[in-house]
Amino acid sequence: MSAQLEQKASYEATFAHNFWKQTLSRVPPIPTHTNLTGKTVLVTGSNVGLGLEAVRNVLRLRPSLVIMGVRSVDKGEKAAAVLRREFPDARIEVWELDMESFRSVQAFATRAERELDRLHVAILNAGLAKLKFERVEEGGRHEVTMQVNYLSTALLSLLLLPKLKPTTSSSEPGRLSIVNSGASLGMSVEDPGDERLLDSFDRPEKFDAFAYYGLSKLLVMMFVAKLAQMINPKEVIVNCTDPGATKGTAFFRNVNSWIMNIGVRAFMGLIGRRMPDASRIYLHSSLVLGEESHGSWTDWIIRCWPKTMYTDQGRKMSEKLWDETLEELKFAGVKGKLQNDT
Rank of each mutant, 00 (worst) to 15 (best):
F102W: 13
E235W: 01
M309A: 01
V238D: 04
L329P: 07
A126S: 15
L198N: 09
T23H: 02
G174Q: 10
I302H: 12
G272R: 10
E205C: 13
A225S: 13
L326C: 04
D341S: 13
S177I: 03
E143D: 07
K21I: 10
G38R: 08
L97D: 01
V220I: 14
D199W: 14
E195S: 12
L287W: 07
K337Q: 09
V73I: 14
E93P: 02
L338F: 01
L155S: 05
S10L: 13
L185R: 13
L161M: 06
I178W: 06
S101H: 09
L215S: 01
L5H: 04
F102R: 11
Q147N: 13
G174S: 14
A225G: 01
I281S: 04
R114D: 11
P276Y: 03
A126C: 06
L131T: 11
L151T: 03
R265N: 14
A122K: 00
K206T: 03
N254D: 07
E86W: 08
V136L: 14
G38L: 00
Y310P: 05
V105Q: 02
G139A: 12
E138V: 12
E172A: 14
L159E: 15
M222V: 02
M146G: 00
I67R: 07
S293I: 07
K234G: 04
A80C: 13
Y213L: 04
R253E: 10
V334K: 11
G45A: 12
G69Y: 08
V66I: 13
I271Y: 14
V264F: 15
H284Y: 05
C304Y: 00
G272N: 09
W20L: 15
L116Y: 01
L42I: 13
N35K: 04
M275L: 10
M222Q: 15
M68S: 05
L160R: 09
L65Y: 01
N261G: 13
A332W: 14
Y11L: 12
M187E: 14
L61M: 13
T311I: 08
T298L: 03
L197V: 08
A245H: 11
R273K: 15
F331V: 12
H142L: 09
H17A: 13
L24G: 01
K337Y: 00
R253F: 02
A79R: 12
K8Q: 14
F108Q: 06
T168E: 09
K8H: 11
A209K: 10
N47L: 10
D312T: 15
T14N: 09
I231F: 00
M275R: 14
V148Y: 11
N256F: 01
L176M: 03
D242I: 05
V236C: 03
A183K: 05
A109W: 03
K234P: 00
L164C: 07
L128Q: 12
L215V: 06
C240F: 07
V66R: 01
E319T: 07
R141G: 06
E292T: 03
W20H: 15
L42D: 05
N125V: 08
C240V: 10
V236P: 10
K39D: 08
Q229T: 14
N149P: 02
D208T: 05
T37P: 00
A79W: 09
D191L: 11
K163P: 08
T153M: 09
E115S: 11
A129L: 07
G69K: 06
K316T: 15
R111W: 00
I302F: 00
A122G: 02
T342H: 13
N35T: 11
E292C: 08
F19W: 14
R56A: 03
E319L: 12
